[in-house]
Structures are given as C-alpha cells and as structure tokens.
C-alpha cells in the first residue's frame, strides 16, 4: 500500500518544488545565497543551475505520476534525493550559513529539516521504485486507507517545511479565541512593586534625589497603606561624604494609570547612626530655586 502510493506523494512533492524553482520569480535571488554561486562562479550560472534542477524535478514528477509501476522514475527520484543529501552535506561543510535553496522559498541556513527533506525524497524514491501497482488503481481499490496514508505523508512533509509557523499560527490563535487565554488575569489586584518603582522613577522626588541615590532598588515592603522603597546612596555635606539609606514612601495602591503624579515621601537616613539626615532636595538638585523675598 505505502509502496504503491509513494509515487503519488513523491510526484506531487517534486512537482511543487520543481515548479517553484523553474518558474519562481525569486529563484535568482535565492540562488545568489546558495553555495552554487561559489561552485559555478557567478549568480547567473547558479540561478540557471537551480532552474535546471527544477526542470529535472518536474520531469521526474511527471514520470512518477504517469508511469508509477515502472522502476525508472522511482530510481531517478532516489538518485535526485541522494544528490540533494550530498549537495547539502557539501554546502554545510563549506558554507554553513548559505541558504539551501531546496524548496526555492526558504532562505534560512541549512538545518536538520533540510537534510530530513532530502532524505525523505531519497526514501520516497526507493519506495516508488518498488511500487507494483499504479497509484490510481490502488486508490480506487482502497479509497479510505489511501486517503489516510496520503494525508499522513502530506502532514509529515509539511512538518519538515520551514514554513510551518504559517500553518500553526492561525490554529493557535483560533484555539485561544475558542478556549480563552490560559494566562492569569488580575489575581487579587495588588499593585506590583515594579509598577510603584516605575511611578517613583517618573516623579519629581526621584529626579530631585538623583544626586544622592546610587543603587537600584534594594528592598521594598508594604506597611499600613504605604509602600516603602529602599535605595542606597551617598550624602555629602560639610562633615564629608557618608553612606545613607534613601527611603521613598508612596501609596501602595497608586499606579501611573490612576494617578500619574502622587505625593512621594522622601527621607534620607544615615546608614551608621540611623539618624534622619535633613536634606533640602529641591535646593540640592538645582531644580528650583526659592524666590527671594522682597
């Protein structure tokens, strides 16, 4: 059964890839990225070679589809497949980043899928060479099983195609639309610490404290409706520089969406003595100077 249907599957595969190579508008572009350019000297010859291979594929496909019970088309397919494997092996060894040009569509570097595809052509050719019955009489005899085998083979070949995402993406989208997203929706409504940090870093308080703050976020905790964010810093005054903790306290439920400029409490605490250091943030940062009283 599988042997008898091999010419059909293989013939359609070669017809599609051969036609794409022979008649494709982008064949010249694709050829320019293959190892053929280096082997044959220039891009024109490479494109010609790729189109010639396409023509051979089409001829073999015609043979497979029209005279499936004879040995020659199957053997020719196997030889073609072996040639592809050899070509890929040579290209992989000498120019691993080159495009394979296999289906005249994919531009990616040669990978496992390229080899699997060439190997499939080789195996399919061997199977086709041993076909005893023409595929149309086999299909007429066992229509159900034939459709199943062809469908499985087509799915297998599709899975070897690098254009797989084009098939999967709409299916995945459909699944999400039907069954809903598996991702968590808002679990409990607590504002993430990162959102509070984001809010802080857009605030005047943060800009004003820039000369003191040295670290990124060290610690964060919630207490009695406040969210306290701790940063390390260095404060310099007449007595010299000393390490300090810079504490920012914000409403723990504030987000940029609801309140883009909430009040921020800022305090600077000496890291050694644990005393509050009086700092005039607005004067320190030079953001605003007090108006002189007249």
């Amino acid at each position: 059964m599988i042997l008898d249907l091999a010419p059909l599957v293989c013939g359609v595969l070669l017809a599609v890839s051969g036609a794409a190579k022979l008649l494709g508008r982008r064949t010249a572009q694709v050829a320019a990225n293959t190892v053929l350019v280096r082997v044959l000297g220039n891009g024109h010859r490479a494109a010609f070679a790729l189109r010639a291979v396409g023509a051979v594929e089409l001829a073999v496909a015609a043979g497979l589809l029209a005279a499936p019970a004879t040995v020659v088309p199957g053997a020719a397919t196997a030889v073609l497949g072996a040639g592809f494997v050899g070509y890929l092996g040579y290209a992989k060894a000498t120019a691993p980043q080159s495009s394979c040009g296999c289906s005249a569509r994919d531009e990616g570097p040669i990978g496992v899928r390229s080899f699997a595809r060439a190997g499939a052509v080789l195996l399919c050719g061997v199977a086709a060479a041993f076909a005893g019955t023409a595929w149309w009489s086999r299909v007429a005899r066992d229509p159900g099983w034939s459709v199943l085998v062809v469908a499985v083979a087509a799915a297998g070949l599709l899975a070897l195609s690098t254009d797989l995402d084009r098939v999967w993406l709409p299916l995945r989208r459909l699944r999400l639309r039907v069954f809903g997203t598996p991702l968590p929706a808002d679990p409990g409504g607590r504002v993430p610490v990162e959102a509070t940090v984001e809010l802080l870093e857009r605030s005047l308080a943060w800009q004003a404290s820039a000369p003191i703050v040295r670290s990124a976020l060290l610690d964060a905790w919630d207490d009695d409706g406040w969210r306290v964010l701790r940063f390390a810093g260095v404060h310099e005054d007449a007595r010299g520089a000393r390490p300090v903790n810079v504490l920012f306290a914000l409403d723990e439920n504030a987000t940029a969406d609801a309140n883009p400029s909430p009040a921020v409490r800022v305090s600077v605490i000496d890291d050694r003595t644990q005393e509050v250091v009086p700092v005039d943030l607005l004067a320190l940062s030079g953001l605003r100077r007090p108006l002189r009283m007249v």
Binding site: E198, R230, A249, S267, D280, L287
Partner: peptide, 22 residues
C-alpha cells in the same frame, strides 16, 4: 525605617522624567 521614612519625610509631588529601574 518605616517609622523614620514617614516621620521626617520631605513630601514631593508633581511629575518629572525618569528611567525604568531595570
């Protein structure tokens, strides 16, 4: 630290530009 932060804090409002922490 919470007591210290809420006790002697300077309160700054209004918004300004800044980066995202990470």
């Amino acid at each position: 630290l919470t007591t210290a932060a809420l006790g002697g804090a300077t309160i700054v409002g209004a918004s300004a530009l800044g980066g995202i922490d990470a």
